[in-house]
């Protein structure tokens, strides 16, 4: 059975003037680590809130663990774990008090499900008497995850859990998600970071409230239809301008210290000469593998 099923849901704000989620459908299998990848304002949080029964969809239906998000909101609230994008625990309560409070609210105890949070909790346990407001970003996220996990949820909703967290803590966080997945918990996570996409089982690329593609990260990369080239030259700005004016270019954009580009007929034999003729030097052209971000950019065009 699917853990999450979303059928053509639409969500608008301001009496229909702003379309946040536009006819979105996807499903997540039991025990899957599913990523919702997209920039800020793509509609990720709205989808999360509809699935956690906090918002009502304007159109369409959705189920979590087979329960309807509108009719059976009580059952869903009993069984899922939710970690909102903003750090949302009590800043003036200590780590220990926060955890105990949420355990009690969910009608359980910390001891009962300690095995679930043990790996994460041992990292913040030395600071358990410290108030949550005084913790670092990474520790806050770990505490929030503990609180969301303490009642052994069937499905875990994590809305941008790594935003504003340092790279090392981000890496640790994803390792934790991997381990939780092994315990059979379905995890739906959203992130604006493309590099985190490859850590998911499957991902949905979302932009402007619309899903562009749903697949495994490998498939998304492998189905990149064109040959992709990374190009470098002494002047980045001139290079981008020149690539745009090159008649065979189908798509080009900056990507770190390189420019990425695809070409009609996948032919780059004349490109080197063309760039030189425009006054660029130190030219380097490489045939490369597409990344998730390249796929995402292609889908946007």
């Amino acid at each position: 059975m699917e853990a999450i099923r979303v059928n053509h849901i639409t969500k608008t704000y301001n009496e229909g003037k702003v379309k946040a989620v536009d006819d979105v459908s996807f499903s997540v299998g039991k025990g899957e680590l599913f990523g919702l990848i997209g920039p800020d304002g793509a509609g990720k949080t709205s989808i999360f809130r509809m699935l956690t029964t906090l918002l009502l969809p304007d159109k369409g239906t959705a189920t979590v663990d087979g329960f309807d998000v509108v009719k059976d909101f009580r059952q869903i609230r009993n069984s899922v774990g939710y970690m909102p994008g903003k750090f949302s625990l009590y800043q003036d309560l200590t780590i220990e008090e926060n955890l105990n409070f949420f355990a009690t609210v969910f009608d359980t105890t910390v001891e009962q499900n300690y095995h679930l949070i043990k790996d994460i909790y041992v990292q913040i346990e030395p600071f358990k008497k410290r108030r949550a407001g005084k913790l670092s970003g990474g520790m806050k996220q770990k505490l929030a995850l503990c609180c969301a996990l303490i009642h052994k949820p069937t499905t875990l909703f994590l809305d941008e859990p790594t935003t504003g967290v340092d790279p090392v803590s981000r890496k640790e966080f994803w390792e934790m998600l991997r381990r939780l997945k092994e315990q059979g918990i379905t995890i739906m996570v959203s992130t604006p970071y493309m590099d985190e996409a490859s850590l998911c089982d499957r991902i949905a690329l979302i932009q402007g409230g619309k899903i562009l593609s749903v697949d495994t990260p490998d498939n998304i990369v492998n189905t990149y239809p064109d040959r992709l080239y990374a190009i470098k030259a002494n002047e980045m700005y001139l290079l981008l301008k020149t690539l745009e004016s090159y008649p065979d270019t189908s798509n080009s954009y900056a990507f770190g210290e390189y420019a990425h580009a695809t070409f009609k007929n996948n032919d780059v034999s004349e490109l080197d000469n063309y760039l030189s003729s425009k006054g660029l030097s130190g030219i380097e052209i490489k045939d490369i593998e597409a990344t998730i971000e390249d796929s995402f950019i292609r889908l946007l065009h």
């Binding site: 956690t52 906090l54 009993n78 949302s88 625990l89 969910f106």
Partner: peptide, 12 residues
Amino acid sequence: TGTMEILLVSPF
């Protein structure tokens, strides 16, 4: 502070 969001998504 957003804690209401968590409280609503709970059996409470």
